[in-house]
Amino acid sequence: MSEWRLYEVFVRSKHGLNHKHVGSVHASDAEMAMENARDLYTRRSEGVSIWVVPSDTITASASDEKEVLFDPSEDKVYRHASFYKLPDEVGHM
């Protein structure tokens, strides 16, 4: 059990367009990960499709880089559509 690999689980719900991360499972291989994911995360009809991805194949951003990566976008209000005034004739968008 201690040697089992960790897999991240993504589930697409019935009406969802994309797979969403729902959690993780331990498993000795991908097939077992899929079965475990099915039993853990879709037992109340949460999904119609499952992806399992070995956690150690994911490249993640480092938490100590948070300021460098994400703070600069906080004062760039012009990147939001709501920053721009709509001409009256456009009406509702």
């Binding site: 059990m1 331990h26 079965e35 475990n36 039993d39 037992r43």
Partner: peptide
Amino acid sequence: APALEEEMALMN
């Protein structure tokens, strides 16, 4: 069960 995942599966 030997692992949480297996426990859920067995009970299912």
